[in-house]
Design a protein around this nucleic acid. Structure first.
Lengths: 343, 343
DNA sequence: GGCAATAGTGTTAACGTTCACATGGCTCCC
DNA sequence: GGGAGCCATGTGAACGTTAACACTATTGCC
């Protein structure tokens, strides 16, 4: 049993054992065609005997390909981003890439710059950024960060391809559903105003109401948290107590919807008897809330996969052609929290 | 303005511009002390003029340090793992390491082997594995994967250090809280039986009841999902209808607790009036459920940080001394879903 | 004033791969 | 029978960095 004296075995060790040149070992390792079958076998044997595995660093140095992609993540405490990240990881691995992640808790230009610098230092070949905030997208576009870059939920016109769910269509579907049930208008509790998704949902909601010629109320500004949902749910109950017609509310995410349900319940309002509630995201708990929440599902895994496809496309064709975007449809899941308005 | 003709600038380009040797550039880049201040300035200027940044691959090749740590993640759809991952990432970055993640959707030996191989190929310097399942821990221990390795929530005796929350203490606190309220015994809805955390919570629950001399009922086996919580919640209601004394239930995670609340509500049982419910995890929604859920909070970020500290320790002192573990306390958060039993 | 230590810099050789090219030996075909 | 072409293999030079050592001034000290 040959050994390499404590040292990790390298190609020339294998070569010596197999009685060939290091180059032939390289050919075997990389599946090059023109190697005699018997030689391949001898090299393979030497490899397993020594426990050799190729040094990716040396390979990367000479090929100028690190095989590493970067991912910028924000707020992975939220359901969406963490799911998307999982989708990206899976797709990256399938494509034979490694994925290095860095999170920017802080969407300020400085925070993003630091995070991106971390990726550049690592010589990533490309990067996908989960960039739900307007400020972050701008910081990203201005920065000399890693390229190519694709964004998730980044909004158009940023100068790089974007993959995301059709937020506006999802919002319109939610509103249409409520109008179809007979509600005269739909209130809205919105997400953090600096998030593009929040904005798109507000826009979809408003446009669908406008198209139907309904009253458009002022959206109640939340911050995605259950707490803010709870507070705005109370506000909604107050409005109703003051005589405003509040029979349906479209809440910008499920976490806030949880808070809304609690607030309405505490105010003695039945859901969906008095008020219908529709959320967004379809978190795993949604179907098991009381009442089961009608919501708009986003296929985050598909978004992650789509983002990676865009990135791989950009890597294959480094031409500076117009960035094509990829949009995944949102789908409404009707459950028990929406019903016709009280008679 | 000097350029390098399309090529990425390398050290010798900087050296030429600054009128020094490449070695001096290296010294400046690495903050070596013995360089004249004026030279440093000249080199720095050349660096920014050329937009040079050091090639991490070449550096890694010669120093034999990749500066990359690996993380094996399972089921990042769950709240705990995704939070922990975020904690690990943050700690890794602060320590100057890159983090490469790989997820094993499949805890079988093959799936783990493949995931680990991916990390080995990348020459990670160490690895932290989020290994909540018994099978996974064993696969990990048997595998010739990356070393050093630390596990999160892996249970002891696996042969590598483990960081985790004190599940058993958390479970005992939950049970004690319910007993203190006056309940004669506490039922338990458990997590997936192949998860070590599930087992530890069952154990803590059982021991606390035993220590108090109370009846220990058969745990109802769930799978962490809201759906299973719902189904077992119905089962619980049935048991009660059949005359069994069911006044308190300790549910192994909050997601299942959501389902339990729904099932009890549908069965016409009040929480906490008829039945008290205590969860585990303290997901963001917990405080805004109806009623606000009493639960046991886990500080996942701290667990991630602790795991990374263990890993860094192992990297510094590669001696094969006994692996020390790190345990983070769980803390009970009393809210509205627990109260004294009905009179 | 001389000798050792030290600050500042340069030269050369690794690190472990892949790439480009060279070298034989063989087959094929006119 | 002799060159064109292919197969199987080897040789040497990259890739861009850091480590080791060598070298020259300068300083400190008796």
């Amino acid at each position: 049993m040959p050994t390499t004296g404590g040292r990790n075995p390298v190609m020339s060790d294998v070569a010596k054992v197999a009685g060939v040149s290091h180059q032939t070992v390289s050919r075997v390792v990389n599946g090059h065609p023109n190697v005699r079958e018997e030689t391949v076998a001898r090299v393979r044997h030497a490899i397993s005997e020594l426990g050799y595995h190729p040094n990716s660093t040396a390979r990367a140095l000479v090929t100028r390909r690190t095989n590493v992609l970067g991912a910028l993540a924000v707020d992975t405490t939220l359901f969406g981003p963490s799911q998307t990240l999982a989708g990206i990881e899976q797709a990256a691995r399938e494509a034979g890439y490694f994925l290095s992640i860095v999170s920017a808790d802080d969407p300020s230009p400085d925070g993003v710059a630091e995070a991106m610098d971390h990726l550049v230092q690592q010589s990533v070949e490309g990067c996908v950024a989960i960039a739900p905030q307007r400020e972050l997208v701008h910081a990203l576009a201005a920065l000399p960060g890693p390229r190519p870059l694709v964004a998730v939920e980044g909004g158009e016109g940023a100068g790089f391809p974007v993959a995301g769910v059709d937020q506006e269509q999802g919002a319109r579907d939610a509103v249409r559903h409520l109008l179809d049930l007979g509600h005269r208008t739909v209130h809205h509790i919105s997400g953090r105003s600096d998030w593009l998704e929040a904005e798109a949902r507000v826009h979809g909601w408003r446009e669908e109401l406008r198209a139907a010629g309904r009253t458009v109320t002022e959206p109640l500004p939340g911050d995605w948290s259950p707490r803010s949902g709870y507070e705005l749910g109370r506000r909604l109950a107050e409005l109703r107590a003051e005589g405003e017609e509040v029979t349906a509310v479209f809440v910008a995410n499920d976490q806030m919807a949880v808070g809304v349900l609690k607030a309405l319940h505490e105010a003695g309002l039945g859901v969906p008897g008095d008020v219908s509630v529709v959320g967004f995201d379809d978190i795993p708990e949604a179907a098991y809330l009381t009442p089961a929440l009608t919501t708009v599902a986003q296929d985050f895994t598909r978004v992650g996969t789509a983002a990676l496809e865009l990135l791989l496309g950009a890597l294959d064709a480094p031409s500076a052609d117009a960035p094509a975007d990829r949009t995944v449809p949102a789908v409404l899941r009707v459950r028990d929290s929406s019903a016709p308005p009280p008679a």
